[in-house]
């Protein structure tokens, strides 16, 4: 290790520290994904309602099995109850990130969050 350290000049330490600070400063980017702003509720693939995630609200959507209840609170939304047999969409709990989705397939209802400018809604995943 020592012979390698001898290759470093005083300014190199400075540059490396600056680099480390830049990496550290960028770490929060790894988890942030922008705020979700809108809950898009669909039945049979057509939009039933678009609720802004600003004020608390409850919405009932009628499907073939009965009513699915969507609950919206500031910054998050969930399926509060659903008549489906396995309750997958209810068990998902609160959705907070843009593009996250809860699908109540038996009742033909879905709840998806989208970002502030509706941006990115065209992508399921990214690959290159």
């Amino acid at each position: 290790m020592r012979p390698w350290l001898a290759l470093l000049r005083p300014g190199d330490w400075l540059v490396m520290l600056a680099g480390l600070a830049a990496v550290g400063a960028s770490v929060p980017l790894l988890w942030s994904s922008g705020a979700a702003a809108l809950a898009v509720i669909k039945r049979d693939g057509t939009v039933v309602a678009e609720l802004p995630l600003t004020a608390p609200r409850k919405l009932e959507v009628k499907g073939p099995l009965g009513n699915t209840v969507i609950e919206v609170q500031p910054g998050r939304a969930r399926v509060a109850s659903d008549p489906g047999p396995r309750q997958y969409c209810v068990l998902q709990g609160w959705l907070t990130r843009p593009n996250s989705i809860a699908i109540c397939a038996p009742n033909h209802v879905s709840l998806q969050l989208s970002g502030s400018r509706g941006e990115g809604s065209g992508f399921d995943s990214l690959n290159y």
């Binding site: 490396m16 680099g19 480390l20 830049a22 990496v23 960028s26 770490v27 980017l29 790894l30 988890w31 942030s32 994904s33 922008g34 941006e119 990115g120 992508f123 990214l126 290159y128």
Partner: peptide
């Protein structure tokens, strides 16, 4: 190539590798 802000989530990984 990836016209979506999603690429910036990977900035810490790329920056760490660069360092």
């Amino acid at each position: 190539l990836v016209p979506h802000d999603g690429v910036f989530h990977l900035v810490p990984v790329f920056a760490g590798a660069a360092l």
